[in-house]
Design a binder for these strands. Sequence first.
DNA 1: CGCGAAATTGACTATATTCAAAGCTAGTGG
DNA 2: CCACTAGCTTTGAATATAGTCAATTTCGCG
Lengths: 246, 246
Amino acid sequence: MSGALPQSDGEDANIPASCRVCGARRFGICKALKSSELLRLSASTRRRKIEHGDTISFEEDEVVEYANIVEGAVKLTKILKDGRQQIVGLQFAPEFIGKPFSEMTTVSVEAATDVEICVFPKAEFERMLHQEPNFEHRLLEQTLTQLDDARSWMVTLGRKTAQEKVASFLVLLANNLGRLNTSGSNMISFTLPLKRADIADFLGLTIETVSRQMTRLRKDKLIDIQRNLDVTILDMRRLKDLADGN
Amino acid sequence: MSGALPQSDGEDANIPASCRVCGARRFGICKALKSSELLRLSASTRRRKIEHGDTISFEEDEVVEYANIVEGAVKLTKILKDGRQQIVGLQFAPEFIGKPFSEMTTVSVEAATDVEICVFPKAEFERMLHQEPNFEHRLLEQTLTQLDDARSWMVTLGRKTAQEKVASFLVLLANNLGRLNTSGSNMISFTLPLKRADIADFLGLTIETVSRQMTRLRKDKLIDIQRNLDVTILDMRRLKDLADGN
DNA sequence: CGCGAAATTGACTATATTCAAAGCTAGTGG
DNA sequence: CCACTAGCTTTGAATATAGTCAATTTCGCG
């Protein structure tokens, strides 16, 4: 059946059905795989849906599988013994989740929105990495990007004011989730994938401080918020300047 | 000549002389190279000494070469336009410096101590990565470790008090530079590779706050400091607990 | 409509910053 | 060898920013 139909995108007709619409195949690590390899890997993968708020794996869990995010956003968190928490990363489709070549994870992974992931068993994934240098190369590139992101965020955590932190957060989301507003102007809209408590944990602030800064940005006409979670950025230029400390 | 002598460590006698005593060969990315490959790579490398305080490469420089740290410690920094600065990483021998597969760097690299590095030209290094999957694998492992380190430090920056930050910094140094004190007790000593201003930039604090917390740790008999830069940790257990927020 | 969770707002407090002054330390030259 | 300087570091006092605690308001959902 698949062989008879013309492929709209001109790609190999043999790629697995579940991969065909998967962003990870086009922009994630699976891009490095040939169709035959994709087919083989997909034989041992499975899709899993995770509800918003559920934990995918706990800090210091044993590593037993890896995954690509197919849909949604996840947060990576670390906690101190007394409960203080820090979100150390937000990841969106089609990024890779997991800590290859390790026995233990060092972060908790939690679904920030409703999430769909494509799960690889540890052994099969690592075999694939070993056999296909391009695959590992791709993973290296993603890891380098994540390292860059982490270091940029360190500047936010260490050196920015509460106001600048909140602005930085909104700019980050706009870049990852933002859609041009239907009104046709250059306003950008998105739905917050995190509640205030999580935003606070991401920014190293308290809920109250986040709330106050949001209010201030609203009063300054940089953003608009509807029902606590739908954000419209009214002036991206000024918001970016604020985020960058100008 | 080299062939006639028995090798004390039983290793291939053909490794380049400069690599023979280099920590990167045993613990860094060069560990992944066979002696023939090491020989080839070393043909295009050169050693360079950099004085404490000198900048090795600037943020947003074009990437033209990579390097291994042979001796000493370097700091990776990012700055905001108004001059606020954040150190986003400290690296010690035999770690790798550089941003592979990129046009531009995203951090400044500066010698924290007097430093010796082993420089690879961009093209040759990337060719080696491409030809030798083990080499790239090793780089991936180092990058994953750096990502982990960065994320751990994000907790320090976002969620710890000034006191805990300074304790965390001292524990970090003890792990990387510490030597058991000559007195034979379980005290650990090292020389600070950073002055107060840099420590402040690493911890997201001011000079004065760092100084006050150091004084407090000294008064609490957790550490001792001689001549502003020689630190002895008197009670590692308590210092670690403090750093971890217990 | 009414309930519980989440977010906002207000008043007060604490922690770290800022500004200012004085103390060390290492290196230089008399 | 000592005095002097320049650059760091420490210390102190006042201030500001974000945190804490508490009260309301808003939102989402049965």
